[in-house]
Amino acid sequence: MTDTSVLDPLGALSAAGVSIWLDDLSRELLASGRLAELVADRHVVGVTTNPTIFASAVAEGDRYTEQLSLLFDAGVSVDDAIFAITTADVRAGCQTLRDVHDATGGVDGRVSIEVDPRLAQDTAATVDQARVLWEGVNHPNLFIKIPATRAGLPAITTAISEGISVNVTLIFALDRYREVMDAYLTGLEHAAAAGLDLSAIHSVASFFVSRVDTEIDARLTAIGTPDALAAKGKAAVANARLAYQAYEEVIAQPRWARLASAGAHAQRPLWASTGVKDPAYPDTMYVTELIAPGTVNTMPGATLAAFADHGRVTEDAVRGGYRAARAHLHTLDQLGIDYQDVTETLEREGLAKFEKSWDELSRTVNRELHAASR
């Protein structure tokens, strides 16, 4: 451990090759200059958003009142109001992070906005909204979030083939992650065939972490044996480490080498849902245990603050753990944990949570629209 890692843990994390993104965006964060401060002082180089984050932002304070009043007077629908509010914030976020984007050659300085999750099982509708969001924000450092459902895979390919940069979200299973990487490479191949500049296309693959432990820990607790209880709190990190191994395997293939030689960028693994759900675990666990070069860790504000305060950077936290990770998944199988059922459950519940969040955002915007009109 170096002195730098003690004095500036986030700086040491960044130096280890991890891009630090904030899982939060609001008009208050933007207008107060707090996001700019995090970029300048906390090594934040990207932002992710979701409907729950926007719902909370709209419900708090009065930063949105003027825009909401204008939208109400214009008689727009709730969906159109959501589009106007969220794209305005994301556009401003892109502007705040534009210098980072330019300094990193487009790799970082990214802001993500999500396709309506109600479209997750509709490929064509997902692609259509990805296009509308891409054109509506109209900044090169935008990412369009598309869920890694069966219907989402061809949507990812189509979006990438058209030069739309994508943040693939809601990945739990290793097999699905491999399909996501294939969808990205296929999109790049189509883009190359169409004569697009591959160097302008970027992507990350958001592998969800803490929810894996939440689901598997509950099943281990139900089993209740000493061996089962001893296995708690390890599955999420093991799963993510094996995802990074799969990523390394893909970028070692001739298929990727051909695309890279044409200017393509690798689709970086992104660790999402890195806030610890179980207070028995260290609050920086899903950062410390998943340090690897060429990755992104998108943290809620509390996790970012915790790592800034007492985070520790260890060398090769991921690549040295492949064998142990595989052994742990085998142990879970021996204990009766059905990995496929776990990941299918998590995807199904994740989509339901996304839709619930969208409904929450719709109710909030509808309420605030009418409140702003008074």
Rank of each mutant, 00 (worst) to 15 (best):
A12M: 03
A12W: 02
L13G: 05
L13S: 06
L13A: 00
L13M: 09
A16I: 02
G17C: 10
V18C: 06
V18L: 07
S19P: 07
I20M: 06
I20F: 08
I20D: 01
W21M: 10
W21P: 05
L22C: 09
L22S: 10
D23E: 06
D24C: 07
L25C: 04
L25M: 12
S26K: 04
S26F: 03
S26V: 07
R27W: 04
E28R: 12
L30C: 09
A31R: 12
A31D: 15
S32K: 12
S32G: 15
S32A: 12
G33K: 11
R34D: 13
R34E: 14
L35Y: 00
L35V: 01
L35G: 02
L35N: 01
A36I: 02
A36P: 03
E37I: 09
E37Q: 13
L38C: 02
V39L: 05
V39E: 04
V39T: 07
V39Y: 01
A40F: 09
D41N: 12
D41R: 12
R42G: 01
R42D: 15
R42H: 14
R42C: 10
H43Y: 12
V44D: 01
V44Y: 02
V44I: 05
V44Q: 01
V45F: 10
V45M: 07
V45Y: 10
V45G: 02
G46N: 11
V47Q: 04
V47M: 10
V47T: 06
T48I: 04
T49K: 01
T49I: 06
T49A: 05
N50W: 01
N50A: 08
P51E: 01
P51R: 02
P51L: 06
P51N: 09
I53C: 00
I53Y: 07
I53L: 11
F54I: 04
F54Y: 11
A55Y: 00
S56D: 12
S56M: 13
S56E: 14
A57R: 03
V58A: 04
V58D: 02
V58G: 02
A59G: 07
A59P: 09
A59F: 05
G61P: 01
G61I: 02
D62S: 14
D62Q: 14
D62I: 09
D62E: 15
R63H: 13
R63F: 08
R63Q: 10
Y64N: 02
Y64V: 02
Y64G: 03
Y64A: 05
T65E: 13
E66W: 08
Q67R: 12
Q67P: 07
Q67V: 08
L68Q: 05
L68N: 03
L68E: 02
L68K: 00
L68Y: 09
S69G: 15
S69T: 12
L70F: 13
L70S: 14
L70M: 15
L70N: 14
F72D: 13
F72L: 14
D73T: 13
D73R: 15
D73H: 13
D73L: 14
D73K: 13
A74N: 14
V76A: 11
